[in-house]
Amino acid sequence: MFSKGLKKEHYGYLFIAPFFIIFIVFGLYPIVYSFYLSLSSWDGFGSPEIIGFANYKRLIGDYMFYKALFNTLFIWVISVIPQLTVSLILAVILHEKFIKGKSLFRAIFFFPNIVTAASLGLLVGLIFSWQSGSFNELLINLGIISDPVNWPDKPYFMRLLISSILFWQYFGYSMIIYIAGLQGISRDLLEAAEIDGASKVQVFFKITLPLLKPIMIFQVITSIIGGMQIFDQPYTLTNGSGNPDNATLTSVMYLYKTAFTRYQYGYGSAIAFGLFIIIVIFSIISFVVMNRKTKGAQG
């Protein structure tokens, strides 16, 4: 009996094998091969030629890489700060007993999150276009401006527009996650604090917020990983151009364009790895910083 039972455990390998085979072929190999390509020069024809770290040297001195990185960071920071705060406020509000229509509000706020990002980019592009955009027409109707403003030609406006799309798509998602976190906090604890004379604001800052810390760390790190990879919305918003003056060219757009429109596959791979390293560094920094704050609060 015993030896038979032991044998059964080996079936586990058969159950996990298909996943790992697919993962090695379509997940691991592409990453390893990209790394190999990042050390070589290849235009898609013939075979790649190893050139050592030349691509990385080029990357370190590449103005456009830094510009794309700046654009990405700018867009991310401007979207993520309101995203994580507004969603927290909403979560606390929608967790209150007295609110009516909670599930309807949750559904409406969450909905933009599941809409095709590429379609949204195009839609916002149409609404904010120069000559026939409904935003300009609304402003003219309201008498705020007399002639249409060429919004797509304003670098900071376009960056803010992408930030707004991201905020609009993700605040509901963050809210749902905060609500799930709030549901894990016992109501007795909060009610006990209120009976002891703590105000709602005090309860929020002294009890709720510290208990939500792990959820906040989770949200910040996933938003870094996601935010550094913004692609769909700026791509369709600007018809793939990154205009005006490359102000909306994000890091992944730069990677895509380098590899797949200029056919510099080697350099494109180096951009991917450069970006990956930056994502890892940012994730570690934010994890350490947020964890340290928790320890401070406890001690």
Partner: peptide, 20 residues
Amino acid sequence: FVLATMMVPQQLGLVGTFRI
């Protein structure tokens, strides 16, 4: 290991995916 792969950004292997 499976869990760790969730943290790897998709774009990292983009060029390699095209190749495979």
